[in-house]
Design a protein around this nucleic acid. Structure first.
Lengths: 336, 336
DNA sequence: CTGAAAGCGCTTACAG
DNA sequence: CTGAAAGCGCTTACAG
């Protein structure tokens, strides 16, 4: 292994000076800088990040904490992750995906080990215990999502109000007046107080009242099969509905295939609009879904930048709420 | 921050002794061990992994290298990742997902930094340049997949021969004699020499000849839309085919929906069998797909264990090939 | 069974 | 602008 000591000797300088050019942390004359750079490339030097981390107390590693065992790591999650990883790379950080439980226990272990400079927290609950862990341990973090109390927390999130309003407005504009929302299942302990479930349902109740449309909310797990079950339920119990909004992306696919199997034509008999979805996923449905596109790439980037700002001591990024945008597919049409 | 020095002082021993009980690396009397353990819990000591890594040259971090920008990180990939992360945790390692390009360049950067003890390589090409990088840098690694030359490489992979044979045997047993295989698209530079594409197609050609069935192979990108295109092609050019095997999971969904749209009933007019698929995904199709289940959980675990064995200097795990197992859904039936 | 000490490869005041 | 030296928090021969 080639160390800074080797480079220093080769270039005839001290290791301090090598460090200065490596980190651009003190002025160095062009001549010695050149000699050092040549030495580095001739010897094939690569700085040991572990030693740097120990000496500087900065690992330049950011963990994206994701409860991969409790919440499925699906299309949208992959979008958040890849855009966050990109944003980190541009700022000379590594972002790694760290699968942790959502009770805060594993997180305590991890941040205590000093391996990461900060954490991007995904799948946030309204009363998320992990936030307390991070605060208590003094770990810098940014939320992709929101807890209930937000004083001073760096966060970015989906703008559920605007998203739901746009969705309802679109369907209302097509002439629909009787809706069903297939919402998240908050009774599932794995989604206890899960922000997107609570906020989207609240937004829907408010907006549907504003528009004066009939409101029914069916909780539903996020799986194809559960979506198919919801399709059966709404067909049986709410045959008058002409439009369905579905929160979860896997459930949305199930609702469409369930309606197909029950012989209800989408969108001729009933329109289906997915409330939060990755584009790749909408294409899996037949007919192709109309959907509100989850701003995963945007939020992954913003959340990471927000964290890195803190790490670098720069001005904090203001919290941002980004709405999903409407993508019209083939699953929505005016009612009969 | 509480350090080993603090613990040692509190327990009235040297830091070496603390290290010995922490790592269980030398015998320590029960009495002093107890005192040290009490000191640790009283002080809330957590060992600094960065310092440990620098001193011991072991970070206990394993990177799963995935070309997330080139290959979609879908259902099956998520299965590999979560089972690998689990297996690592059980052995006191952290497995993190590291998005790297598949040309070996980024990988060189990463392993040179000394942050990871070893690498689990995903999405392996037959002549994968990343393997050379890992060998040259002396980085321990295990492949989930296989290159062409395998002398001494730790690897686990899908048993494509058995998988394809079981699939063909099943369809042949139903009475089918005229098949089409919708295969991977090797002309896409992102999938240049991609192992699963090459091996599954080769296996198919061999097995279909053995069974004396008619063989047609259509290359197809891995997307719903491409699958729908393949459905159109095979309907137009191979109307005599009674069974379709589809390699890629997204394409498989497209083939079914494409056939549906063309008015060809699945399975009454034509059977569809997906050759490698995650269970979650098969349920998305209508009718539900018959499929060969990708052994993602098994291979993620085996690949990680194989790497950890190397890191611990234990006997190497022998290479293993695991076949996908048949799951009969509603998309296959005897031919008319 | 336990301890003193060197060392892992860097960064960073401090001095010049 | 450059260097000598302390120190980051551990592990690990070596000695007793």
């Amino acid at each position: 292994m080639v160390t800074m000591r080797d480079v220093a000797k080769h270039a005839g300088v001290s290791i301090a000076t090598v460090s200065f050019v490596l980190n651009d942390t003190k002025p160095v004359t062009a001549a010695t800088r050149l000699r050092i750079e040549q030495a580095m490339s001739e010897l094939g030097f690569r700085r040991n990040m572990v030693a740097r981390a120990l000496a500087s107390r900065k690992t330049h590693i950011i963990a994206m904490a994701y409860p991969a065992l409790d919440h499925r790591f699906g299309f949208s999650a992959a979008e958040f992750f890849t855009s966050a990883a990109d944003a980190a790379r541009k700022e000379d950080y590594h972002l790694v995906l760290w699968p942790v439980g959502n009770d805060g226990h594993e997180l305590t272990e991890l941040v205590g080990q000093g391996l990461v400079d900060g954490v991007v927290l995904m799948e946030v609950q309204l009363d998320d215990p992990r936030v307390g862990v991070l605060q208590r341990t003094g770990t810098p973090f940014a939320l992709i999502g929101r807890t209930t109390t937000l004083e001073g927390l760096a966060h970015v999130d989906i703008d559920f109000d605007t998203t739901v309003e746009q969705a309802v407005d679109y369907l209302h504009g097509l002439g629909h007046r009787r809706f069903v929302m297939v919402a998240g299942d908050l009774t599932d302990p794995k989604f206890h107080n899960y922000g997107p479930f609570v906020r989207s349902e609240a937004a829907y109740r408010r907006v549907s009242a504003e528009y004066g449309v009939e409101t029914t909310v069916l909780p539903c797990a996020d799986s194809t099969r559960a979506g198919q079950g919801a399709a059966a339920t709404l067909t049986r119990d709410h045959p008058e509905a002409t439009a369905v909004l579905v929160l979860n992306e896997y459930a949305a696919l199930g609702v469409v295939s369930g309606l197909n199997r029950l012989g209800r034509a989408v969108p001729a008999d009933i329109s289906v609009l997915s409330l939060l979805m990755a584009p790749d996923m909408a294409a899996l449905s037949d007919p192709e879904l109309s959907f509100m596109r989850t701003p995963g790439p945007e939020l992954g980037q913003l959340g990471t930048e927000s964290l890195i700002r803190q790490l670098e001591g720069a001005d904090p990024l203001p919290p941002q709420l980004v709405p999903a945008d409407l993508r019209i597919g083939a699953s929505t049409a005016p009612p009969r």
